[in-house]
Amino acid sequence: MGSQGDAKNGGEENMAAWLVAVNTLKIQPFELPSLGPHDVRVRMKAVGICGSDVHYLKTLRCAHFVVEEPMVIGHECAGIIEEIGSEVTHLVPGDRVALEPGISCWRCSYCKQGSYNLCPEMKFFATPPVHGSLANQVVHPADLCFKLPDDISLEEGAMCEPLSVGVHACRRANVGPETNVLIMGAGPIGLVALLAARAFGAPRVVIVDVDEFRLSVAKDLGASETVQVSTKAEVLKPAFSPTLMGLG
């Protein structure tokens, strides 16, 4: 992990939200690495709070990843380029960008095949022991910073990462104009999967959850139908043959 200590960038101290204990965040200095020739320094303007961040906050772990020392959280992010490395040509200071939070090795068989998301050496924002992006500024590879169109806000740019989950699910399920879709769970990822399924042309999207408010949001976002279920086990017989997405 990077160090805590004096952190001067662009003439000011760089601060970040450090997870230091269960349910305990502290705003402390965050020292950035030196800017490499293919890197950029980005001033963060919008950072989403993912379910993984909440898990780390409440339990100091998410699945088999365990926070063993203070860590900067956050990975859904967008910001403005402050400085570019000497070899960066496609970005300039002032550009608004969304950040891909995962840095792969670029050398393994998965990376060479284009499936860099499966890289076993992946360094992902806010996944121990890698620090995240809930900071004033971060340094990141320029190739993993994507310029936002003028009509996309920085807040929307930060949502590109969770939206990509819904897009990936639709691609894996071959969703199209002939596909009926059932989504199990109307949480944030379920809702972006709903939006993606609609964009992919799915004519009927049914979404299921235990929470009435979440289902009302799903209806507002274009769900064909919503189904509220109890927390008790029940056997449901669907009225159609759906493509199933478990995306709570």
Score class of each variant (00 low, 15 high):
M1W: 03
G2Y: 14
G2I: 11
K8R: 11
N9M: 01
G10M: 05
A17N: 07
A17G: 05
W18D: 02
W18T: 03
V22H: 11
N23P: 03
L25P: 07
L32K: 00
P33I: 00
R41C: 05
V42N: 03
M44S: 05
M44K: 08
S52N: 08
V54W: 12
V54G: 09
Y56M: 07
L57P: 11
K58C: 09
R61V: 00
C62Q: 02
V66N: 02
E68P: 01
E69V: 04
G74H: 10
A78D: 02
G79W: 09
I84K: 10
G85E: 07
T89P: 04
V92C: 10
P93Y: 01
L99V: 13
L99R: 03
L99M: 12
E100Y: 13
S104V: 05
C108Q: 03
S109K: 13
C111E: 13
K112S: 13
Q113N: 15
G114W: 01
S115I: 12
Y116Q: 10
N117T: 15
M122P: 02
F124H: 11
F125E: 11
A126E: 06
P128E: 14
P129R: 03
H131E: 14
H131L: 08
G132V: 02
S133M: 08
L134D: 03
N136S: 11
V139R: 08
P141R: 08
D143R: 14
K147I: 09
P149S: 06
P149T: 05
D151W: 00
S153K: 04
L154S: 06
E155P: 01
E155T: 06
E156V: 11
E156Q: 14
G157N: 08
P162D: 06
P162H: 06
G166A: 03
V167H: 07
V167I: 15
R172N: 15
A173P: 13
A173I: 13
G187N: 11
G187V: 07
I189P: 09
V192A: 04
A193N: 05
A193P: 08
L194M: 05
A196L: 13
A196P: 14
A197F: 00
F200V: 13
V205T: 06
D211Y: 06
D211P: 11
D211H: 09
D211W: 02
L215Y: 12
A218T: 10
D220S: 10
D220P: 10
L221W: 10
L221P: 00
E225W: 03
V227G: 09
S230E: 15
A233D: 13
V235T: 12
K237N: 14
A239L: 14
P242H: 06
M245Y: 04
M245V: 15
L247W: 05
L247I: 01
